[in-house]
Design a binder for these strands. Structure first.
Lengths: 236, 236
DNA sequence: TAACTTTTGTTAAAATTTTTTAACGCTAGG
DNA sequence: CCTAGCGTTAAAAAATTTTAACAAAAGTTA
């Protein structure tokens, strides 16, 4: 069964998560500091780490960096509302996902499930194809099809979709998107981003008012929906 | 040494080519009809066939098709001025190159050399990269660099360049380019084609008046220059 | 819950870029 | 020297992108 390491300086959080995750069938390790967490990580090589960013002794970023050095790349960041900037930074550094405190256990479980499924599906991590039976994207061929019909995207729309594809199922922060689509030096890029998200939804979503593919992450960025498993005969 | 088969109903042409090509060190077979040519082709599997399109018994197209069936894909079409349309058709069917009669032996030799070099260089036939030290094109990455500096192409310019790339060093007919860049139904596409050739030259050529890369083939189409061998340390 | 704040979504218009169209000069080939 | 086809230029048309303003929704606070 999968191993999960929780690192947080709040003992109440550690206890809550340990009890909950164990009822879900995970093997759980907890650590009250970054240093202790790294030791446990080194020893047990957990499949997932839940990491609180605000910790006194060794700060969350340093801990995150060292976890990656150890070879652990599945990290979900936990952050308080007030240091959302830190979460953004961690996501841009490559964290898998983020979770706002106070922790909603249903959301947590959903994210864990998604993450494990993704890791198994695409361990190669080359996201140049998307296919869920309705929407079919091929970045190499530069084609987008919706229920068999080709969708025409403008160059900017295409770049935006590519950036989201690169991290399918994971949040991509506003800043990261803006940097990758419009380039580094860009004032007021959020306006354009919102507009192009709108355009993409008009072209890709069945009901643009209730987006299914292109999802907003409030205050953070956007996420392209993880494709559902697709029947084998449709996969081609 | 390489084998060349010449198929033409004009005995004078056969003799001329046989003598000339043998002085160039090739093993030469000649045939006065398509049927005889196919037999020789089957028997000797020549590396190259020079095929006259206008022949009485079996017409050039039929011969060309059967040569391909045999597995011979290096065919240079020879055509008289008056049936240029046929040459265009043969090129669109995949012939390697064409030669106008009366035959200029210098041009013939140049084309043969180019063709053999190309066959050896890119036997895989995947032309997604172009690099001669100055101009660097990567179709997959969708980037074009000139002496290290990125060149910005519009979508149409890019499609045009891609079509020429697909057949580097070979002629691509006007009609084929227009079909691939602008789509099938298109009236007066030649005007746009000429203009976009102009744009490409402005962006790629050192001296757009004396094009080096994007070459016109009078009455037939365009050709992207075969890249010269590039020093190994520049190849990356 | 109600009021408020922040962020996201939508719309419209202006600005820019790309593409088309058309006219005409130039050049190669006959 | 004539003609067909190529190259160039300019202007109009269409598409794409930016900008700005405002509406709607989500999150926060009392």
């Amino acid at each position: 069964m999968s191993k999960i390491l929780v690192i947080d300086d709040d003992v109440a959080v550690l206890q809550l998560l340990q009890i909950y995750l164990e009822t879900q069938g995970f093997i759980v390790f907890t650590a009250k500091s970054g240093r202790a967490g790294l030791e446990l990580a080194w020893e047990h090589m957990p499949n997932l780490v839940l990491l609180d960013l605000v910790m006194p002794i060794m700060d969350g970023f340093e801990t995150y960096r060292r976890l990656r050095d150890i070879g652990i790349d599945s990290v979900i960041i936990m952050s308080h509302r007030q240091d959302e900037r830190s979460a953004v930074k961690a996501l841009e550094m490559g964290a898998e996902d983020y979770l706002r405190k106070p922790i909603n256990l249903d959301i947590l479980q959903a994210k864990i499930q998604t993450l494990f499924r993704r890791k198994n599906l695409y361990s190669g991590d080359v996201f140049s194809l998307y296919n869920d039976g309705h929407l079919h994207i091929d970045l190499d061929a530069r084609t987008v099809m919706l229920d068999g019909a080709p969708v025409k995207l403008t160059p900017t729309e295409y770049r935006l979709l590519s950036v989201l594809m690169r991290k399918v199922g994971r949040v991509v922060t506003h800043e990261e998107i803006i940097k990758d689509v419009w380039g580094a030096g860009k004032k007021e890029g959020l306006g354009s981003l919102k507009l192009y998200i709108h355009y993409l939804r008009q072209k890709l979503e069945e009901n643009p008012r209730k987006p299914y593919y292109v999802l907003a992450e409030w205050g953070i960025g956007y996420r392209l929906k993880e494709p559902e498993e697709v029947p084998a005969e449709q996969a081609a």
